[in-house]
Design a protein around this nucleic acid. Structure first.
Lengths: 216, 216
DNA sequence: AATGGAAACGGACAATTGTCCGCAACCATC
DNA sequence: GATGGTTGCGGACAATTGTCCGTTTCCATT
């Protein structure tokens, strides 16, 4: 299935080990192959949602500890499954940026990237959703049905509608814009910028307003 | 702790039951009170992260089934705990919109709402984060460290930087804008619009570009 | 107040996750 | 090819989640 002397492994050595050039590494590769094959198989049979780490370990015939040492959770397994696909996509994106005529406006390139990304997401929707969910959520869309979200939505929607009516802005997709604003100022987003990137309230606020107020 | 004859319960009857005017309802109220009190206590003692549904049921002295029938997960418990606070906030938001001079530009009001929301999130950061996490994520910031995200980030950042340099846009907060764009076109966001709201690729794409390309 | 059916309780259980550690395989050195 | 230290395996385990169902409580009717 793969030349043993392949010096360049397809898989990007998630983190540790991978010592010299043989035996231990062979087993490692074999295990990883088996895990991914099993995962792929299970996903195909049972559907993306119903696969568990336990199942994969069982069917792949490896201990759970072994599985967990390689992949912290299902999302990482899926990530690895998509590795090639994602890499290819990212590379083609990178190339399309690099190769572009330097005189092409950057914003034009931006919209190309957005377009390509959405195409990609659209095609690989199911798996990507699982990956993203594993890293990011548990019960996908539920948040949108929650009172807080709904109320905020109902508050913002008419506001934007009025802004359009009165000619302050135009050509916007109101629901989409509202939803985008809501994820943009979600607690996670704010806390990431505040606690990890060191933003203060003012800077965050201004950046958001630049996009959603001044921009529109 | 609360007058038994309070006809207007603070808690908004999450969903079912609540029949006529007594007994069954009393117990219901009492249980809910006990659950929330316990949850509040546990959170204060152990910190938001380490509280489990099991613990709450145990300490509140109710069966797990009972707890789960009222609250599907921790996020809902926290939501209910925040209910009053959130309601107050939402109401004040609503009022500030309603009371505003009708001649106030809608976009001006929008920026006010954004500002107030960020203040609110900043104050209640910890609990809100938990609530949001429960509905939405598992391991908070991890996604930002993942290769796919990083690569996309590294691709977009220089692009926007160039757009600024070349005078296509200005006054934007580049990292924040990149991150906002990335959550805006995340698989979840796309799938919600596509599968729940019935958007097609084109409409989604155009809405996003209106915000992040034409807008900027 | 006895009775019957509906609604809700509680806790046992099955399913998962994630961790821990005794044991075995492996590589380097002699 | 024996020896010893290191690395990694496997699967038992503790902790949780979420569900299911026999039992209890409650209300309405008689």
């Amino acid at each position: 299935m793969k030349q043993p002397n392949d010096e360049q492994d397809t898989l990007p050595d998630t983190k540790e080990s991978a010592a010299p050039g043989s035996r231990r590494e062979e087993r490692d590769t074999e295990y990883r192959r088996r895990i991914l094959a099993t995962a792929s198989d299970l996903i195909e049979r049972r559907g993306t949602e119903c696969v568990t780490m336990y199942q994969i370990a069982q069917e792949a015939g490896v201990g759970q500890g072994t599985l967990y040492r390689r992949y912290a959770h299902l999302g990482e397994v899926c990530s690895d499954l998509m590795q090639t696909t994602v890499d290819t996509f990212l590379q083609s994106l990178g190339e399309s940026v690099a190769e572009a005529d330097p005189s092409t406006p950057a914003m034009r390139q931006l919209s190309d990237i957005i377009s390509l990304s959405i195409d990609f997401i659209d095609q690989k929707a199911s798996l990507l959703h699982t990956i993203h969910s594993m890293y990011v959520e548990k019960k996908s869309h539920t948040i949108y049905q929650k009172p807080f979200f709904r109320t905020m939505h109902d508050l913002l929607q008419p506001l934007l509608a009025r802004a359009v009516e009165q000619g302050e802005i135009r050509d916007i997709d109101i629901p989409l814009t509202v939803n985008t604003l809501l994820v943009a100022v979600s607690p996670n987003q704010y806390l990431y910028h505040r606690d990890v990137l060191g933003y203060d309230k003012k800077r965050f606020m201004e950046g958001i307003c630049r996009i959603f107020v001044k921009g529109l």
